[in-house]
Computed example of a mutant assay.
Amino acid sequence: MRVAFAGTPEFARVALERLHAARFDIPLVLTQPDRPAGRGMKLQPSPVKQFALEKNIPVVQPRSLRLDGKYPEDAAAAKQALEAARLDVLAVAAYGLILPQWVLDTPRLGCLNIHASLLPRWRGAAPIHRAIEAGDAETGITIMQMDAGLDTGDMLLVERVPIGARDTTGSLHDELAVLGGRLIVEALEMLACGGLTRTPQPEDGVTYASKIEKAEAAIDWSQPAEAIERRIRAFDPFPGATGQLAGETVKLWKARALPGRGSAAPGTVVAVDEHGIGVACGDGSRLEVLELQRAGGKRMPFAEFLRGFPIAPGQRFETAA
């Protein structure tokens, strides 16, 4: 089978690597244009592009795929490349561009998407973050036959993964990336022999995983400790959950919600001991903070952090601006 690939970040690179290792014929890779990154803000290729170049796979980087959009010349060049590739399938993972109907219609067997949720729950841009934030007990990978809607296509393969009490977006991302790579290979092998069954998504249970905005990083201390603890895990490694203490923005990377009820105002430091930094939250609940980071510093266990940033009971975390 001739399988082109469209994807951009590390999650997608893992899938492309598995497809290459499985010896599929990959005539073309689509990925986002190089972006400035690092202290020097130099243009950096995406992880998918880096892998493709290492394996001498041709790469196309359109700014848009809309023939009637802002960059029609990019879309036209991509169309020419895709048509010339004589594709059986286009495999897609976290590409970042909407695929118009002409792209969906170009491969002989259509486009298959690797989506990091149990559809129809968490359609959209940030399914891993939102599953952890919401307190879901499980997530997984859905291999989906793409259509013109937002993650609305028929399901082809589904595998479930439990969300552990200490899972972060980073840890779950890595697990799901490996699973997605395995499942897309299985799906394509089954498709080659006509063994895939298409199952329409149920109409009930649809939720949308909106893009993570930096403004969401600010902790609302009036929320219960369990909700704050989930958000801290959901926003690790990006964008990080933040609080304002003694005039400085501090990131909180690890914490646990404790049982019991108190009367201190939300955000108030109620204990600093060998177990952690206890902070009052909404409904009288309490969060024990275990790992923090100052601006420009590194992530530290709370005991190490306190040596350079003393914190005492009675101080108060505010919601960071």
Rank of each mutant, 00 (worst) to 15 (best):
R23V: 02
F24K: 06
D25Y: 00
D25W: 01
D25S: 14
I26N: 01
I26L: 15
I26S: 04
L28Q: 03
L28C: 06
L28K: 00
V29D: 09
L30Q: 02
L30R: 04
L30K: 02
L30H: 03
L30N: 02
L30W: 03
T31D: 09
T31Q: 06
T31W: 04
Q32D: 00
Q32L: 14
P33F: 08
P33C: 10
P33M: 10
P33I: 06
D34S: 10
D34W: 04
R35T: 10
R35K: 15
P36T: 11
P36I: 11
A37F: 11
G38L: 09
G38H: 08
R39G: 15
R39D: 15
M41G: 03
M41S: 11
M41N: 12
K42T: 14
L43Y: 09
Q44P: 00
Q44W: 08
P45G: 07
P45T: 07
P45F: 02
S46P: 07
S46C: 08
S46H: 09
S46K: 10
P47F: 11
P47N: 07
P47K: 07
P47R: 08
P47G: 07
P47M: 10
V48K: 04
K49S: 14
K49R: 13
Q50T: 13
Q50Y: 00
Q50A: 13
Q50V: 12
F51W: 14
E54K: 13
E54A: 14
K55E: 11
K55N: 10
K55T: 11
K55G: 00
I57T: 11
I57S: 07
